[in-house]
Design a protein around this nucleic acid. Structure first.
Length: 219
DNA sequence: GCGACAG
DNA sequence: ATCTTGTCGC
């Protein structure tokens, strides 16, 4: 698929903050997705003492979740891990992998937060804007926000709050299993995002898309 | 100032 | 994220 260049990648934290604050206003938090026929999962792994980034994308059919296409991109790591700036570390390699795809996914599930971020511009937002694809942030742990206890049954969820606003949902994707932290990435509403995450995770805690991408990035 | 901190 | 074996529990 085709990826348009939007901005150069920053060399300093101040430049990174400026990019996040300039782009956050472009995030769309309502449903602007077409019929979902293909869902993708992306993940980035690191090797060789952190100097190599390996991005993997897995495209599955929806709703049957069968693997349709995969892509891998290896690239020199150019940004350190800093909470709040994860996208600057992972997105460059992910864009290279997405560019190789023959099938343009209708929705991407990302490994990390969307607007559940201090400046409301987490990894899923950044990737969604740069790739111009609807995205959902599906994080395995809490970054910011507070929430009530979530019931143990699959499908139950609680709003994630920060500074008086709902920034995401804490969702139980499987009964009696640790919840996931879901937030809007781009071009999707929170309730629709919850629905897709549940439909993509029929059997395990993590969505099938993410499971495939994880596996591909570590091979 | 101190601690916490997506992957 | 990554380094790493077996092991407890549904």
């Amino acid at each position: 698929m085709k990826i348009e260049e939007r901005h150069p990648f920053p060399q300093t934290i101040d430049e990174a903050i400026a990019i996040q604050e300039n782009l956050r206003g472009e995030i769309i938090t309502t449903d602007q997705l077409s019929t979902v026929q293909y869902v993708a999962g992306v993940d980035v792994g690191f090797a060789e003492n952190d100097t190599l980034s390996v991005a993997a994308v897995a495209v599955l059919s929806f709703p049957d979740l069968e693997l349709q296409e995969k892509a891998i991109a290896k690239r020199t790591t150019t940004f350190p891990y800093l909470p709040g700036f994860l996208s600057f570390r992972e997105v460059p390699a992910v864009l290279e992998a997405l560019a190789q795809l023959t099938i343009a996914p209708d929705l991407i599930l990302c490994d990390g937060q969307g607007i559940a971020h201090p400046r409301r511009f987490g990894l899923a937002c950044h990737l969604g804007l740069l790739a111009n694809v609807p995205t959902i942030g599906v994080a395995k742990s809490l970054y910011i926000g507070e929430h009530e206890e979530v019931s143990p049954e699959r499908g139950s969820w609680q709003a994630l709050w920060d500074e008086g606003e709902v920034i995401g949902a804490v969702l139980r994707s499987q009964t009696n299993i640790k919840p996931l932290y879901i937030s809007i990435g781009h071009c999707i509403s929170l309730s629709t995002a919850i629905d897709y995450v549940l439909r993509c995770a029929p059997k395990y805690r993590l969505p099938e898309t993410t499971r495939w991408a994880d596996k591909l990035a570590s091979e």
